[in-house]
């Protein structure tokens, strides 16, 4: 009788862990309507705060190369599930020193902000978490090959952007930014 019970418990465990076989890889599929629109947009950028580590590291994570994009990335968020993407971006914000200098590729929603005081435009890629109630974003700075607004994506459109991770200070806050960024959309309409 006791053995029967242990067998029953084992069966239960097997059934529950069978759910781990799901391999639904959902790339960051973001619903633009769910963005709460509170990305941290800096008021001013101090050029002197840009750190000098901008070389692209030589080692590349082979598992991260998807195959269709051109730029190999160290931290490829496009192959992770949305929960992992959110966690990874959170850690970029919390401990940016682990990521400085690494190439980051992420997919999300394009958002832009024009600061009327300084006349500068800021651009960011926004992602939501699994319940779509929280959003985070990373600012990016495209290379000079792009001219705003013609070469830039549509507001609220889905983009895939890759750049070198960096941070800068503005006032009391440290902001994260992707420099030398290039856009590689999956829809394939606006890459150079």
């Amino acid at each position: 009788m006791k053995r029967c019970r242990y067998i029953l418990v084992l069966i239960v465990i097997i059934c529950v862990t069978a759910g781990c076989g799901k391999d639904k890889e959902v790339p960051a599929d973001v619903n633009p309507a769910a963005i709460s629109g509170t990305e941290e947009v800096p008021a001013d950028v101090d050029p002197a705060a840009i750190s000098g580590t901008e070389e692209v590291p030589a080692d590349v994570d082979p598992a991260a190369i998807s195959g269709t994009e051109e730029v190999p990335a160290d931290v490829d968020l496009t192959v992770l599930s949305s929960t992992m993407v959110y966690a990874e971006v959170y850690h970029m914000m919390v401990s940016p020193e682990d990521y400085i200098g690494r190439t980051v590729k992420m997919a999300g929603v394009f958002s832009s902000y024009h600061d009327y005081n300084t006349g500068k435009d800021y651009f960011a890629c926004i992602i939501s978490d699994a319940t779509a109630c929280c959003s985070q974003g990373i600012e990016f700075e495209l290379t000079d090959d792009y001219i705003y607004p013609d070469d830039y994506p549509e507001e609220g459109g889905e983009i895939c952007v890759a750049g070198v991770f960096d941070t800068y200070e503005d006032g009391d806050y440290t902001y994260c930014i992707l420099r030398e960024a290039r856009i590689e959309t999956e829809k394939g309409s606006e890459s150079t």
Binding site: L8, C15, V16, C20, K24, V26, S81, A130
Partner: peptide
């Protein structure tokens, strides 16, 4: 199981764990 499924499938971790608990309850 809940954490593994939520990481792989992109579901919220908390609810997935509870869903696994409910499933286990049903089976038991």
């Amino acid at each position: 199981s809940g954490i593994v499924i939520s990481i792989l499938a992109g579901t919220p971790a908390g609810s997935t764990i509870v869903a696994a608990d409910v499933a286990a309850f049903g089976l038991c």
